[in-house]
Design a protein around this nucleic acid. Structure first.
Lengths: 160, 160
DNA sequence: CGGAGTGGTCTCGTTTTGGAACTGCCGGGG
DNA sequence: CCCCGGCAGTTCCAAAACGAGACCACTCCG
């Protein structure tokens, strides 16, 4: 089985991971959220090779996560987050919370503050019905509507 | 620069990504949360090659995310999530929320319900001071204590 | 025109990956 | 006891992904 075929599985964790879950993609997006927009800027900020960066940016544009456009002065190109790309932020913040908890022995390298009140922002997994914060132990997955069209398909035994 | 050297940067997004951000690692963890514990079970659930699975499991054990132990019957090996591994769940749920929003045209393939009240669980990025939900636009990163020890180091220009 | 800066491409040697065959271990049944 | 099947883990090789650097085409600016 090829890795890309996983994108056909009816799983909302697997499908994004086929796009985002490789060596550089989420780091490129992290730079995007930090305000990086230009090719050379990405390259020097991340230390990624040019050909790899080209590949990753192209893939993100292809999936509608970044938008590639000529800048106002016409002299260079800009890669900017789309709405879809902007909504990836909670994923990066969830990673950061875990990194702060387990990989930052000297304390958090950065604080991510709410601009309005200077409080720190954190990710919470909450139940939309009762509002309490939940963990993996409190969750039971069950089939949803999106799985119906996949029931009799080949490969349906993979994933959950 | 080698990819693994990124782990030295003082950034709580970059450091976890060096461990978790490759082709299979988060999918292995997704299977773990779904109750998969045995080598062959991981392999048939994911379609990953045996050598790759061996590498990924070993790396996760090495980082204290999974615990490798002999099962009670002594006949086989089990890989179970540690506390550190268990805390990765919000990352997967953030990915799922995004996947449900943008990669599930037929609706969510699965619902993740709160066992106590059957409400659905979702990830929120909230300000711990004022309690409101925030997005990337509302956040201003600033230096934290963990960055001090890295100020004069080589490579400090990378990251943000 | 010439030089600097841009995004992007090409090539080459290295590393990572996928697939499948193979090993060694253990328990159960004859 | 021996054989067999299932298990985790290893080894091998071809293919794909990768890093580094040279190279190209274009645009602005003087």
């Amino acid at each position: 089985m090829r890795y890309e075929d996983l994108a056909d599985l009816p799983c909302s964790i697997t499908r994004p991971l086929v796009i985002l879950g490789d060596r550089w993609t989420l780091l490129v997006l992290k730079a995007s959220f930090a305000g990086v927009r230009r090719f050379n800027e990405f390259q020097s900020a991340l230390g990624i090779s040019r050909s790899r960066l080209q590949d990753r940016l192209g893939r993100l544009v292809e999936h509608g996560i970044l938008d590639r456009r000529q800048a106002a002065d016409g002299a260079h190109v800009e890669y900017r987050l789309t709405r879809k790309g902007h909504d990836i932020y909670p994923i990066l913040m969830a990673i950061r919370d875990w990194g702060d908890a387990y990989m930052a022995p000297d304390g958090p390298p950065a604080r991510y503050r709410h601009r309005d009140c200077t409080g720190e922002a954190h990710v919470q997994l909450t139940c939309e019905a009762c509002g309490t914060e939940v963990t993996a132990h409190d969750i039971t997955p069950e089939p949803g509507p999106g799985i119906l069209s996949h029931l009799g398909r080949p490969g349906a035994e993979l994933g959950q």
